[in-house]
Amino acid sequence: MRGLTHPTRRRFGQGLGGALTLTVLPRAARSHEGTHEIAVRIARFTFDPDRIEIFVGDSVTWSNADLVPHTATAEDGVWDTGALDRGGAGRITFGTVGEHRYFCAFHLHMRGAVVVRAKADG
């Protein structure tokens, strides 16, 4: 999934957690070599954190801790995790610099943003 030039999607089933090494970063991910995977937790109808900064080629994995399904869906429709059931997770790899705003397609008040920076910025 690394090095793709467009956002890509991979959905994971339940129980994925132990199979991946996810790095929970603070809001702004600065130190960077290679690509990273950043975790966003969905709980209590919020994305946590609701705004993250990553570098081109990094991936974001959304994990749903709520009882009900959620999605992380790009406002511009370019990418979508699809429905994430309780305990489920979905990953998107970002290859385009910019601010990628997203929402839950099932609960429209849930909003978030992924800011993708060129590696030279770091």
């Binding site: 009882l67 009900v68 399904p69 059931d85 309780r86 099932f106 609960h107």
Partner: peptide
């Protein structure tokens, strides 16, 4: 949304 969410809650 009601069907999806209430079904999930009742499943739990």
């Amino acid at each position: 949304t009601m069907i999806r969410d209430h079904s999930a809650v009742n499943e739990a």
